[in-house]
């Protein structure tokens, strides 16, 4: 069920999603991605380097935010460009609950060749965790 270019306009909202992040998820992501930086799993280390607690991998947050786009278009290959700025860390406490990354997106510009630019907003605990989060998406 592909999204068609003529179905969208500037301002079209993508379905928003909330992504829970637990310590266990960070350990799993560390293993899958090979990024074993201890700031993502070792509270003692994180505090020693001045962080408030263990923080999520920036690339984990970037991957979650992308899902708002790929779930919308269906075929992940429709994403032809994707960029973010890591503005604030997602702090993940060891309280059995963890954190939540909330992501919204909307069509910000109509481009040539049935492409659109989608601007994403990702927040956690009320803080904007990604800035300049943009994807160029090929529609049908």
């Amino acid at each position: 069920m592909a999204v068609r270019f003529d179905e969208v306009q500037v301002g079209t909202e993508l379905p928003a999603q909330s992504f829970p992040v637990t310590r266990a998820a960070l350990v799993q992501y560390a293993g899958a991605s090979g990024d074993f930086n201890p700031i993502h799993w070792n509270e003692k280390f994180a505090l020693e380097v001045g962080l408030p607690d263990v923080i999520a991998h920036g690339m984990f947050t970037m991957a979650e935010a992308a899902r708002v786009v790929t779930d919308w278009v269906g075929d992940p290959a429709a994403v032809v460009e994707y960029g973010v700025r890591f503005t604030k860390p997602v702090v993940v406490p060891n309280d059995g609950v963890g954190a939540v990354i909330e992501v919204t997106g909307k069509v910000a510009a109509l481009l040539d060749d049935n492409r659109v630019r989608v601007d994403l907003v990702a927040t956690s605990a009320g803080q904007k965790v990604l800035g300049m989060s943009r994807a160029v998406v090929q529609l049908g």
Binding site: F19, A25, Q28, Y29, G31, A32, S33, F60, A63, E64, R67, T70, D71, G74, D75, P76, A77
Partner: peptide, 25 residues
Amino acid sequence: REFAAAIGDANPAYTDAEAAKSLGH
């Protein structure tokens, strides 16, 4: 598959070759 599971993404294009082929991959 391992990476998709780690980001919690169930998109079948990542794990099901037939689903990926139906999208042209």
